[in-house]
Nucleic acid binder design. Structure first.
Lengths: 125, 125
DNA sequence: CTAAAACCTGACGTTGACGTCAGAGGCAAG
DNA sequence: CTTGCCTCTGACGTCAACGTCAGGTTTTAG
């Protein structure tokens, strides 16, 4: 025993990752280009991912949807899968959190404004 | 009496509107170009607005912040200041409302994910 | 009167996360 | 073998709400 971590992980190609995470193949390549995702390569040059890459891609997508830039996500990922950060990273995390919270508040206010209009126009047939 | 609505509204120029609403002069011109805002013109061609234009610009900004396009805002504005809509407009209003609500949910989920990371990294000095 | 500040009309530049197209391989099935 | 699907690397296109620069007129402060 003590075989050097045979790790018989089933490696999947980019199409399967994309479908699994609900994004385009182009997007997955883009994430790699932005340094958010690493892939092994087959002898012929095709990207090979572990299945948990799907989870990672979903996370990346969620952060994009929250308005984080590739840069911020790149800074965030080490915190995510290592659980260890320095002061600068913690400050960034809190700043992003505050930004998202502010955005939620803005959206909520916009919802209220829209609801006013909807209510008025619904009671004015 | 019965003078044809003298309306001695104090008209203001674009700079004042922009400052009042907290946007750039360029933005106000852009809103006009998108058909969201109408302005009288002075003899020399400068735009003149009633003071309530500030309120309108703020509303436009809020809708932009909520992710509505110029097109949608243009469709929405008549509902806002006339309080009367047709079926298509009501459907649009509800659709936008649903979109924004979905976005709020996404942001909230992202906030939760970020909080997980923050909590973990804060308890791991 | 004059200089600064504000305004005008174009029109090109920016940003970010991809979409899309071109051209060239790779890979299992029949 | 070849058909068809997947993948590769560039590299240009997109979209939307403005930013910004150029070159000229207008209004205001002193």
């Amino acid at each position: 025993m003590t075989v050097t971590q045979a790790a018989d992980e089933r490696l999947v190609r980019i199409g399967e990752v994309a479908r699994g995470a609900g994004v385009s193949v182009r997007a997955v390549r883009y994430y790699e280009q932005q340094g958010l995702l690493v892939a092994e390569r087959s002898p012929s040059g095709q990207r090979l991912y572990r299945q948990d890459a799907v989870t990672l891609v979903r996370f990346i997508q969620q952060m994009y949807a929250a308005g984080l830039t590739s840069q911020r996500i790149a800074e965030l990922l080490p915190c995510w899968d290592s659980g260890h950060t320095d002061d600068r990273q913690r400050a960034m995390l809190r700043a992003e959190r505050a930004r998202i919270q502010a955005k939620v508040d803005d959206l909520q206010a916009a919802l209220d404004r829209l609801d006013e209009v909807i209510e008025i126009t619904d009671t004015h047939p």
